[in-house]
Simulated assay, not measured.
Amino acid sequence: MKKLINTLSLIFFAGVMAVSAQCCNGATANDNSTGTKATACCANNQTSSEVKAYYFHTTRRCATCQAVEKVSKEAIKEYYGDKVIFQSINSDEDKNNELVSKYKISGTALLIVNGDKTVNLTNDAFLNARNNPDKLKSKLKSTIDSMM
């Protein structure tokens, strides 16, 4: 019975990821799920030593997209109050073109930025926001702590 539940969970997860990828245009922003990588444009335009969290999304969002925003925003507020800026950015809106271009966003992405250092947490966010939000919160905290 446990094997059946695990198998069904795996199938469900695969389906959710496929829907998420379709809903979110299969978006990635410098798929750097393993840690840190500064993009050249980030180094040129980011001068503050303030940690910022950017959640890029499109107008049409799935439940996982919404959960990523909700969990990330809650965690950052809980752990850091106003010390870390969380900004939700609709990449479909023209007013956000500069940031979308700066970070080379092509859909949905969760980025933690400090100066010229950018950490992409998109994969962790989409894997955990709905079914294991505490894991996402923990990942956000450890990433932000390491950047402060």
Rank of each mutant, 00 (worst) to 15 (best):
59 T>D: 13
64 T>L: 11
32 N>D: 02
59 T>R: 10
60 R>A: 15
65 C>D: 14
38 A>K: 03
64 T>G: 03
51 V>E: 01
68 V>A: 05
60 R>F: 11
43 A>L: 02
30 N>E: 08
29 A>C: 00
61 R>E: 14
65 C>L: 10
42 C>A: 08
26 G>K: 01
51 V>C: 04
81 G>I: 03
46 Q>V: 07
67 A>S: 09
62 C>E: 11
43 A>Y: 07
67 A>C: 14
52 K>C: 02
71 V>A: 05
56 F>K: 01
49 S>V: 09
36 T>Q: 14
51 V>Y: 06
58 T>C: 06
34 T>P: 14
43 A>K: 12
40 A>P: 13
55 Y>E: 05
57 H>V: 03
64 T>F: 04
55 Y>R: 02
50 E>D: 15
31 D>I: 09
56 F>R: 00
68 V>F: 07
60 R>L: 11
37 K>Y: 14
49 S>L: 11
53 A>S: 07
38 A>F: 01
78 E>R: 03
46 Q>R: 01
59 T>P: 12
34 T>M: 12
50 E>M: 02
79 Y>V: 08
52 K>D: 03
44 N>G: 11
34 T>N: 13
69 E>H: 04
78 E>L: 06
47 T>M: 07
47 T>R: 05
35 G>I: 02
32 N>H: 10
39 T>K: 06
